[in-house]
Design a protein around this nucleic acid. Sequence first.
RNA 1: GCCCCCAUCGUCUAGUGGCCUAGGACGCCGCCCUUUCAAGGCGGUAACGGGGAUUCGAACUCCCCUGGGGGCACCA
Length: 475
Amino acid sequence: MTEAPRVRFSPAPTGSLHVGSARTALFNWLYARHHGGTFCLRIEDTDRARSKEEWVVGIQDTLRWLGLEWDEGPVLQSARFQEYLAAADELLGAGKAYACYCTEDEVKARNDAAMAAGRPPGYDGHCRDLSAEQRASLAAEGRPRSIRFRTPDEGTSHFVDAVRGDVRVEWTHIPDFVIVRSDGNPIFFLANAVDDIAMHISHVIRGEDLIDSTHRVLALREALGVSERPVYAHLPLILGTDRAKLSKRHGAVALEDFRDAGYLPEALVNYLSLLGWAPDDGREVMDADEIVAAFDLDRVTHAAAAFDHAKLDWMNGEWIRRITLPELEARALPIARTAYGDALDVDTLRDALRIGQERAVKVSDIVEQADFLFVDDAAFTIAAESWERVEKTERIGEVLDAVIAHLDGAEWTTEGVDPRGVIDGLGLKARKVMPALYACLEGRHAGLPLFDSMVILGRERTLARFRAARERLGG
RNA sequence: GCCCCCAUCGUCUAGUGGCCUAGGACGCCGCCCUUUCAAGGCGGUAACGGGGAUUCGAACUCCCCUGGGGGCACCA
């Protein structure tokens, strides 16, 4: 009896994919995969003014980057306007919708007046019962015509939400709403209802911010003669750390920003899956297959969740350590190319990733820390604060002399270049002078493991840097 | 203003009447390890918003308050 579910992710291409939408896409994908269903992609671009082709492309790129492959689509609503308009005509003909000649400004003005008078905003039904003569006359005035859906005057709209249970609202709180703009373009509610019917969507999984619009879409379906309803599941919202709705002011919330910043899709998927859902066994670090296997709507939480960058960072570190070196290299390459351009040497980058993998939080951390490998000795510089550390280091001149002497004849291996013996021989604590050596070689007093870095850089360049530092020190 | 939803450590959460002197994870603090910084190991800090009710017994059920969030467009 239970057929394979059909779900859809239907973003509006009015911006890049952000955290909240990505989580919605993920939960739809997880539901489809867990139940062997179909995951459809639909682009809700009925707002021609705000929709942009670049976002249509960008959203798909980001979805693919996350690994959320869709089975059908993308269905572009902008290509289906005639379907929506036909539906609107049907409703018009049946008297379930009516022509409205109020202008946007007039509606807005009456809304403001209602608010000011302490009455609830919303369309006041001004054109609800116009006679044919009145309509003709208004049209003759050259007034633009929009089409409004006639909502019930009484009674209750009710549906059972898969995560929230019974949801009901009095129809008196839902005013007649526009389904076709005065410019002839259909609106979200109409397109949404028509397409969910046409695409045989069985489960609508989306953010809770859309819960009130469900009543309208449901009414539209029924008016179009479709009594079957999809299962609705409204997900708790994702909030910023200040508990307000997540937005640009909370820093990076666009998924592509996370990608560019060196976060791994595995980590984002994993972290996002835990925002509003949790497996019954308490696992946290899981790959996509494990999440798919454990996921279901009955374990979706009800309360809004705050997006925690610190935990994402931890999660990303976990994943950097889990993926293989070739995988890490594939992720780091684009970032490194951007950072170093022609100076980038892929083999050297791979070496840097190898020695940095165990410690990094973000891919970009390793790429940044490897900068000393891609800069000419002549252009190599030491960060000011790091040089200060060098100067403050006890007997640093002696140390550098000894290290240089040691390196000059050392076997060029990780063990061979290890300078701790000579530091010890000077009666100094390796821990104390190590930061200075990091600074001389890497330009920063904390970075990629020193011995391996020397090996990667090679004897000549390593010695050149230590000698340059020794000279700069003088004395 | 009106409608709706939500409410366990700072954060993400487990918990579905007794197993809870509330568990895990991130963060934070301390210790260990250590080639700097990390990572890793070990330990610690920290919560059921308040008030009623039901019950032999409430984090778990009901009501009120408070707090937080969402919605009320010719955006989606």
